[in-house]
Design a protein around this nucleic acid. Structure first.
Lengths: 116, 116
DNA sequence: CAGGATCCTATAAGATACTG
DNA sequence: CAGTATCTTATAGGATCCTG
């Protein structure tokens, strides 16, 4: 990922925004894919290729980027097994699992208010 | 806002993603500002200038864009009074108010898991 | 007061090819 | 299998100036 310029207004606004607990939380799961990834991993640990298969429209690059970012943010644990061929498993951390009930409510909101 | 190309993978992915109730809901409140605006409006209707004052780091342009998008999405009601100088008030709709308890939980998540 | 118009920058996302 | 590397496109966000 390209280094972010530290003095852009974008960055200053972000700094300001994540002082808020609410937007701090939102920033952890922003982007197009993280919420979907968390949802899939809720049922247990999965391998890279298994996750990939769940999202046929997501490129490998995006999956890698998201998983790396989520690892950095403490949302997933990445476990590498020294085998050939390589095996890597991903598992949600406690803080990611705590999103579960919230996502459920968001999903209910979507079901209730989406247009038919 | 620039017209979006209808056949980009970005658009196709979005179409695929919002079939899911969860990500449909998330797409309604995506971006940097909408959640904050909803939070402010929860306490009642506000004028454009009042909202603006709450977010000194947001440009007028962004506020306008967000409010227009939220109006399109049925999240806010925009009420224009035929006065001079002009007066415009914004108020949350029922579907936006329904986000209240969810945002509260997200905020609690942020308070619990954010780094000290 | 409540914005609209124009131009520009930053980031997110995607396509494709390649590798230990 | 589980990624990297490189290039390109798309969208979000911002700066600044202008107006009924």
């Amino acid at each position: 990922m390209a280094a972010r310029k530290k003095n852009s207004t974008y960055t200053r606004n972000e700094a300001h925004i994540i002082e808020c607990d609410l937007t701090y939380a939102v920033n952890k799961i922003n982007g197009r894919w993280k919420i979907l990834i968390i949802s899939k991993l809720e049922s247990g640990k999965m391998r890279f290729g298994e996750i990939k298969k769940e999202f046929p429209y997501m490129t490998e690059r995006m999956l890698t980027l998201q998983l790396r970012a989520m690892e950095q943010d403490g949302l997933v644990k990445r476990m590498v097994y020294a085998e050939v061929p390589p095996r890597v498993e991903y598992e949600l951390t406690e803080m990611a699992l705590a999103f579960g009930p919230i996502f459920k409510q968001l999903s209910e909101w979507g079901g209730k208010y989406r247009l038919p």
